[in-house]
């Protein structure tokens, strides 16, 4: 892999994480437990679409084959997606959605805090802009983890089950790809292993307040970064990509 290809792949991963989670959150539109929660989740989704657009636009420029953000989002097959397995997981109930959001946004906040110092000015710029949004997402998710965990017996159980579903996907977030070594030593990419301490600290503090037990991580499941996805991503893409693929010239 050339340095350029490695940077393309890295930027694609950043964009795909935001894009796929955004699509998942969008599924809550009209279905959340309350109108206000509906607006909260779709607001997060819209922020993530914005971030995905910035990263995928840049990825297309790095690649230099004339693909823009839309082309990358809507005309790529499932095995070409580089998102983490966590973000493609089905929403489940509100508890599981909040568990997934807490894990992802806490990770993403730590990531952007480092990426905003990247020696690649475009990545640094996008991270700096996105950090404010992501900080809000992480805080919102933490508030909900506390309220569900320290809420009723049922809400405690549901958010606990939600986290149980998600734990096996955590490791992947904090694992660099072999191709990243050059980017990391050049100060372009962030070594995700370095973000783990901050993630663990936030998790411990939030779980203490939420009266939730700290995780016993099961054997990790990985592969998303290499394009090996769960069956769920194909279904998600079928819905997301249907319109632009069936009507390639559609505009609105």
């Amino acid at each position: 892999m050339t340095a350029n290809e490695a940077l393309f792949d890295y930027t694609l991963r950043l964009g795909d994480d935001a894009l796929i989670l955004s699509q998942r959150l969008g599924e809550w539109c009209g279905h959340a437990p309350a109108l206000e929660a509906d607006l909260s989740l779709t607001n997060v989704a819209l922020d993530l679409i914005g971030q995905a657009t910035l990263f995928l636009t840049y990825a297309g420029e790095i690649e230099g084959k004339g693909r823009d953000a839309d082309k990358l989002a809507f005309h790529r097959d499932v095995n070409k997606f580089r998102n983490s397995l966590l973000v493609e997981q089905p929403n489940g109930d509100f508890g599981r959605t909040i568990a997934r959001q807490f894990i992802f946004s806490t990770y993403q906040r730590a990531l952007y805090q480092e990426l905003m110092r990247s020696s690649d000015p475009r990545l640094a710029e996008i991270a700096a802009k996105a950090l404010k949004e992501t900080t809000y997402h992480a805080e919102l998710a933490a508030e909900w983890v506390v309220r569900l965990g320290d809420g009723t017996e049922e809400s405690h159980e549901r958010v606990e089950d939600g986290f149980e579903w998600c734990w096996r996907f955590v490791e992947e977030l904090f694992t660099a790809e072999p191709a990243d070594a050059g980017l990391i030593s050049a100060g372009i990419a962030v070594d995700p292993a370095k973000l783990r301490a901050s993630f663990d600290a936030t998790l411990a503090a939030t779980f203490a307040e939420a009266t939730l037990a700290l995780p016993k991580y099961p054997r990790p499941v990985t592969g998303g970064r290499k394009g090996h996805h769960s069956e769920h991503l194909g279904h998600l893409l079928a819905e997301m990509q249907f319109l632009p693929r069936a009507y390639p010239d559609a505009v609105w």
Binding site: E36, A37, L39, S40, N43, L140, E143, W144, R147
Partner: peptide, 8 residues
């Protein structure tokens, strides 16, 4: 949470 809902 009311403040967050109001914001959103």
């Amino acid at each position: 949470i009311a403040l967050r809902h109001a914001r959103d």
